[in-house]
Nucleic acid binder design. Structure first.
Lengths: 344, 344
DNA sequence: CTGTTAGCGCGTTCAG
DNA sequence: CTGAACGCGCTAACAG
């Protein structure tokens, strides 16, 4: 591997002149520039970013820590991040935590060592401990998707409260009164918010919340399946289910099918997260679609503006609106009979 | 950011002693080791990997270049890569080419500059040009999913010929004689191989191949939709379709539905790539499932063995078997009437 | 416009 | 067991 010195010697100039040519910085005469370029090509010289970064204190690399790249929601976020970073000439290191706090902290450590310029983090937990230690090290960080309680940190997330409220409102407007929520983990802000939105919609409609209609699980298919089964076996049974994420919704659909029931005829279903158009043959789920790509893009742009120093002093909190997409699973308005005497 | 020197000064030792403690190399007295560890914790010292790599000539970082992380197939491959790399203590940089050769080559350049230890590449094209220039620079590279013609390079891919042949054989055994193939781009080895498998199955059954039943497009939903529409409008119409990848299959399903036809009653359908279990509510597609996770894992392990120097001299070619999963879309055996007089 | 000097933070080499 | 000196490849700072 030739170095900048090899090029300099060969071209009869000083190393710094080669550096200037490569980086298009400072003045170099046309003559020398051409000579250098010829030698660079001849030797197949490739600059060593490591050495450059050591000096410049910039690695032109960001990190994205998320829970599971296998979830299409996160895949789409990742695309938004990569496209925005790539447009600015930065690379991205992806890390999966699988909802493990230990993994998350291990990655944070490794990334600090790697001197990444900034970190995008979808945190496993909502405690601010490790975030502050990152901030103390002067590495800009943007929190994605989930809020951290009591931390002063840039955050980009979607309006879970509003989305949940709108979905449940829709069900209520169709005549549903007995609505179960199949929620995610209690210590994750998105799950908190979706429960809050659910409760608010009930309250707005003066419907007494029922503890037996509230289920907590994981953001996973199996968990959605279990929660739906439990919900359907409560007496009186719910006439509608609200799934707090895409995997839960799919699990719920399977549980409903396996119970010999039909959507929406026997049970209505709404859910958070829309599945990518390309993955679904016949979309039926009425959903609150989060702008996943935009979330990734905007978070990255916020991070980049911190790096370039032209972001406002104060930490930003960007809340993105969700879009309610009405499809068949929420069903038509219930007939009076159904409302009065829900089938079990 | 404190450096190794700050720690050394604070602990009253030489920098090299700190280095020895951090890396657990050489001998350090218990006394000094403890003093150093205390100071490291107090200062929140984090070693700078850049400087370390500059000396050690290892970055402990791999790169994975793929066409589209939004495709669940690639997502799963990526998980396999990350899990294997992470287990060995390496990080992974992901890059999307979107099937653009220019993007691919830009990334290759950037990654060389970043001094990644090795590269996993799902190549856009099958020409060996750029692969050789990487090999000349002594960076190990493993080609994923697609073969490169005439290059001596490590390659891991799935048995597209066998998978395609098996799928089409299945259709033939059910009585289908008029089978359309909805294929990917002509210059990609997976598409070549799937066509080859298709033709072989026909030949084995002594069915004359029909040019009007062969369609070429992109590995995309829209392309699958178009090809299926065209296929269905040929007279006499095919009784079965073979989709060469997951997106094409989904596009085909929509086209069939939009044409007012039913799967498998009016048209049978089989396809390459199975969709992840968690994403599908009601799996109906008879598919050749590629071991995507394993492909990522094995390719990474091959790359790691090159890095550690204990891989065999000769370049490896690993071909992974595909699994035929029979579901409803391939349908039951055709009745004699249907075979003799296929509905259009 | 060009070059010299110095040093980014670390680990190898060799000498205590 | 410990440390001093040196250099990985590059560029900021300062001369000319």
């Amino acid at each position: 591997m030739p170095t900048i010195r090899d090029v300099a010697r060969e071209a009869g100039v000083a190393p710094i002149t080669v550096s200037r040519v490569i980086n298009n910085s400072g003045y170099v005469s046309q003559d020398k520039r051409e000579r250098v370029e010829t030698v660079v090509a001849a030797l197949g010289y490739v600059p060593n970013t490591l050495a450059r970064s050591l000096r410049s204190r910039r690695t032109d690399t960001l990190a994205l820590i998320l829970t599971d790249i296998t979830n299409p929601f996160w895949t789409t976020v990742a695309r938004g991040v990569e496209d925005a970073a790539s447009a600015a000439g930065l690379s991205v290191i992806f890390c999966n935590t699988d909802e493990s706090e230990q993994e998350q902290n291990r990655y944070l450590e490794v990334l600090l060592q790697k001197q990444v310029d900034g970190i995008l983090l979808a945190p496993v937990q909502s405690s601010p401990d490790h975030i502050e230690s990152i901030q103390n090290r002067d590495v800009p960080i943007v929190i994605l998707d989930r809020r951290i309680h009591g931390a002063d940190v840039d955050t980009v997330f979607c309006d879970s409260i509003g989305g949940a409220c709108a979905l449940v409102n829709l069900l209520i407007s169709l005549g549903h009164k007995r609505i179960a929520i199949l929620n995610g983990p209690g210590d994750v802000s998105t799950a908190e918010d979706r429960l809050a939105g659910y409760l608010q919609a009930l309250q707005d409609a003066a419907i007494e919340p029922d503890e037996t209609m509230v289920f907590r699980g994981k953001y996973e298919l199996a968990s959605g399946y279990d929660m739906a089964r439990q919900a359907l076996s409560v007496t009186p049974a719910p006439t509608a289910l609200f799934a707090a994420n895409n995997f839960i919704a799919i699990g719920a659909m399977r549980a409903i099918r396996d119970a010999g029931l039909a959507i929406p005829d026997d049970v209505a279903l709404v859910g958070f997260d829309d599945l990518p158009e390309a993955l679904v043959i016949d979309p039926i789920l009425t959903a609150a679609a989060q702008p996943a790509y935009d979330m990734g893009r905007q978070a990255t742009e916020l991070l980049l503006s911190r790096l370039s120093g032209d972001a406002p002093e104060a930490m930003q909190e960007i809340i993105l609106p969700v879009e309610i997409i009405v499809r068949r699973s929420s069903g038509p308005a219930l007939s009076v009979k159904e409302v009065v005497d829900p089938q079990s």
